[in-house]
Amino acid sequence: MAAPIFAASNFLFPNATFIAEIVAFLVVLGVLAKYVLPPVNKAINDRQAQIRSGLDAAEEGRRLLADAHAQHERLLEEGRREARSIVEQATKVAEQAKADILASARQEAQRLAERARADIAREAERAAEDLRRDLVNLVIETAERVIGAELDAERHRRLIEDAVAALESNAA
């Protein structure tokens, strides 16, 4: 059977089926447009709004966090500065105290040394006095023995003491 292309029912020409197809499509279009797409659109919009508000909240949170961070940083800096000034103050006080202590120690040491020097000088003076007296006595005794007579102690003592003093001043 050889079907001719231009038969009575060429398959490129529509027939009454066309009407039924239009009706069917319009029904589907109507149902979707009226009952299906609005809720789907609403769901999409609701979710977009939700996402947007979530993003806004996240942004707000990020801002708060940054603020808190800045404040924290500021407080920390303040504390650091205060600590530094306290340490500086303490260092200054300590320096002062050290200087005071050193000065007083030096003074004390000087005082002690002077006293020691004075003591030594006094001791030396006393020793020299003793020595001189012993020497005078020795000279008088020796002279008595040599001349066999008692010397006038008072007269000659002054004489000898003058001699010794002259000796000392010569030696000095």
Partner: peptide, 17 residues
Amino acid sequence: GLIVIAMGLAVRWSATK
């Protein structure tokens, strides 16, 4: 058409947000 409408109405009735 019935499949499309059924798919559409199923979404409408179970429209979870």
